[in-house]
Amino acid sequence: MRHGGRADDPDKRRLRRELLAVRSGLPAGDVREAAAELARRALGLPELAQARTVAAYVSVGSEPGTLALLDALRARGVRVLLPVLLPDNNLDWGVYDGPDSLTRVQHGGRMALLEPAGARLGQEAVTAADAVLLPGLAVDARGMRLGRGGGSYDRVLARLERAGAHPALVVLLYDSEVVERVPEEAHDRPVHAVVTPSGVRRFG
């Protein structure tokens, strides 16, 4: 994978492989149980309690589950934005109107993603979010996030920075994915909090 023309860090690639292997071995029951606990804890975050617009994503496979959280946010009257992956790995956005508003999209040889089927709001729509839920594979003690390597969310974070937008940045992970240190590159930015089934940890 590449970001901004640079080859991805080999230490990141190795750590990604290890973390994905652990995730893929999780029993479905554990994934469901963790999703319910993640939603409960995330809904208690002041950053989400006060948010009018939250940019999030739909979990797939054994990722820490987000659907219960998306539905709970929507039930609160929060406007939930979901990403639409573009061919260049940038993200467009659409509004989440419940499970029936999602469509399964196959992106090349990669895993199919659930994306909003409605109107596209443009890449800048994320700059209106009060909080952004970022997918990730790990977060370290400094709040540095390890993503999947496609660079989509690095671009989102750069877009927020250019717009002068400062939403709360939150990652949902399993407990074992909060690690001592992840490899860091110049473009990486720390998050504000990580939510796991056992609790919330804040940074900075």
Rank of each mutant, 00 (worst) to 15 (best):
D8V: 02
D8A: 07
P10W: 15
D11N: 13
D11E: 15
K12E: 00
R13D: 13
R17N: 10
E18K: 12
L19A: 08
R23I: 04
G25I: 03
A28N: 13
D30W: 13
V31Y: 11
A35H: 07
E37W: 11
A39C: 12
A39M: 07
Q50G: 12
A51V: 06
A55K: 04
S59D: 13
V60P: 14
E63N: 13
G65Q: 10
G65R: 07
G65Y: 09
L73W: 04
R74C: 10
R76P: 07
L82Q: 06
P83W: 02
L85C: 09
L85E: 05
L86C: 05
N90G: 09
N90T: 04
D92A: 03
D92W: 03
G94L: 05
G94F: 01
G98E: 09
D100T: 09
L102V: 05
V105S: 04
G109L: 11
R110M: 13
M111H: 12
L114E: 12
E115F: 03
A119E: 08
E124R: 12
A128T: 10
A128W: 06
V132K: 12
L134K: 10
P135L: 15
P135E: 15
G136I: 04
A138L: 11
A138Y: 07
V139D: 08
R145V: 03
L146G: 03
G149D: 05
G150H: 12
G150Y: 08
S152E: 08
D154R: 01
R155L: 00
L157T: 00
A158Q: 08
R159V: 01
L160N: 02
H166Q: 08
L169I: 01
V171I: 06
Y174A: 02
Y174T: 07
Y174D: 02
E177W: 07
E180K: 07
R181D: 05
H187F: 07
P190W: 00
T196W: 05
T196Y: 05
G204L: 01
